[in-house]
Design a protein around this nucleic acid. Structure first.
Lengths: 298, 298
DNA sequence: TTGGTTTGTTCAAAAAATTTGAACAATAAA
DNA sequence: TTTATTGTTCAAATTTTTTGAACAAACCAA
């Protein structure tokens, strides 16, 4: 006879709120409860688990290591629960109540939003949640069911069955530097090996669990890590280092002279960009959205 | 305001039991309830989710596709919940669920793994995560709490209170070059100042935030940066430059004549290697692992 | 076909749980 | 010091859940 875990969803929600808001009082307000109700729920959990989760420090309660662990892992469970109920409703109704999209930050998001706008016009009661990811971060989000659709994820498509990807365009990346950078003085085209001398600006992969992949990282050179494409542009513009950027994105900065495009002996081939989804995902909204995207981008 | 999922653990347990036993009646018996109680719970879930989970076929209830999905995924959540409560209790008892170790790549990792193997034999449900770091990278990982233990980190121990380090051995580094390298022709012992003429191969410090520190870097010379010790060996073997390497590690390459050890006027003192941890970290698993390591390495 | 069973559901009553608000002690801020 | 805020306790109020009897549907065997 397998005795089920004493942890309830309710309790995890309460734990989450207490940590998030910083006090029982504030958490109670958020949950439309009264502080004593939370006290009751926490105590029940502590008793059934036989573990103290909060240590009272003065008039403030602070999580014990065990409590912290329960919270951190519990939040993952809560998130899984949310996607589970979304998925269940989607299967039952055919249409989803919410569609989550990951957009790779390498992509200009404006035309995507205009298509999404059309979709929302058609389907007033579907919510859309867009998040920005970098490189493997978008694939990871798809694989882990954090999103239903990724837009603009770069090749290679993960070798994993159950993922369908179609190309929606390609992106020409060029090497750019600040106008005063040493590299701007050298006569072009430059050999790729020469680049090893300079510090390069790299966007840190947003993937958390998968082995981060790095493309276009200039081998052997020193790196400067940033966490978004905008930071990368800013860093290069500020002269911190060199790096590859999408040609379209830096057009204006090149025109006003801030950035200089460096010609290479071996020009990078254009990078393929994909939209991708799981074939197990049969949602009608997803299908419709994909069709809209395909017809706007080809 | 994020509204939490209507699915409860209780409901998932009921769903699981109904499917497993094949009927409400049998499931009720298993759960020490009465059939009507299960009926109530299922109906509540169906209502709140606005999804029918069971289709009544004759006197028997059968899962709809949505119900099947909820059950299959729900079982994963249930299992996660069980391990979560176990883990929480484990932590409360002073043990850890996972121990992260940084190994300096200068160290031969094989004997470490054999000790870790013993430890895992004793503690089947503790996970171990080993990562390789270089120079300050391992100290940084410890300071920033990315790992619980570093093994084989080189002196000096960071002057920072809260870190305990004990020496586990020393490492003799020698200067080596490819057999055809210019330096191999000069009469030995060589004065350290002479080395400035040659390009030296340097492992890039894996530290990200601290100011990277460089030991054994030949001052003033030109550098070639690589990202791992293996790359360093390969680069030196290929004749790209000169560099210091642990004596034991290049024994075979010296014997077959590929590499040549260069005697120096001022021979490097042997470098002390440490295991280190934070004294705030009171984990019993860490203590046990440290004891195992100490007894195997001294 | 016809009884005898078994199944899940419904319902009102009973039991158990959660929630509430007032009172309180401990602490921090003024 | 006073004042305000925090989390806890407790009995009462409220809500939720459980119960068992009654019931209708469906299966089974003869």
């Amino acid at each position: 006879m397998m005795t089920s875990s004493p942890i309830t969803i309710e309790a995890l929600v309460v734990l989450d709120a207490i940590e998030f808001r910083g006090s029982y009082a504030a958490a109670a307000e958020q949950l439309n409860k009264v502080p004593s109700a939370l006290s009751y729920i926490v105590q029940k959990l502590e008793e059934q688990l036989n573990v103290t989760l909060f240590e009272r420090q003065g008039r403030r309660s602070v999580l014990t290591p065990a409590g912290k662990h329960l919270l951190v892992e519990g939040r993952k469970v809560l998130s899984a629960m949310n996607t589970l109920s979304e998925q269940t409703q989607t299967i039952a109704n055919g249409w989803e109540t919410k569609i989550s999209i990951a957009c790779d930050s390498i992509l200009d998001i404006t035309p995507v939003f205009s298509v999404v706008g059309c979709f929302l016009e058609e389907h007033q009661n579907i919510e859309i949640d867009v998040q920005e990811e970098v490189m493997n971060g978008s694939w990871e989000a798809l694989i882990e069911d954090k999103v239903d659709l990724v837009i603009g994820a770069p090749a290679p498509v993960p070798i994993q069955k159950g993922i369908r990807a179609i190309k929606i365009g390609e992106l020409q990346q060029v090497l750019v530097v600040n106008k005063n950078h040493q590299l701007a003085q050298i006569k072009q085209p430059v050999n790729t090996l020469e680049l090893a001398k300079f510090r390069s600006v790299v966007v840190h992969d947003s993937a958390q669990h998968e082995i981060p992949r790095t493309v276009n990282i200039i081998e052997g050179s020193r790196h400067f890590y940033v966490t978004s494409l905008n930071q990368k542009i800013a860093a290069i513009t500020a002269g911190v280092g060199i790096g590859y950027l999408p040609k379209d994105l830096i057009q204006s900065l090149v025109e006003n002279g801030e950035l200089v495009i460096i010609a290479l002996v071996d020009e990078l081939p254009p990078q393929d960009l994909f939209i991708a989804w799981k074939i197990t995902n049969k949602g009608k909204g997803l299908l419709r959205l994909r069709n809209l995207l395909s017809s706007h981008f080809s």
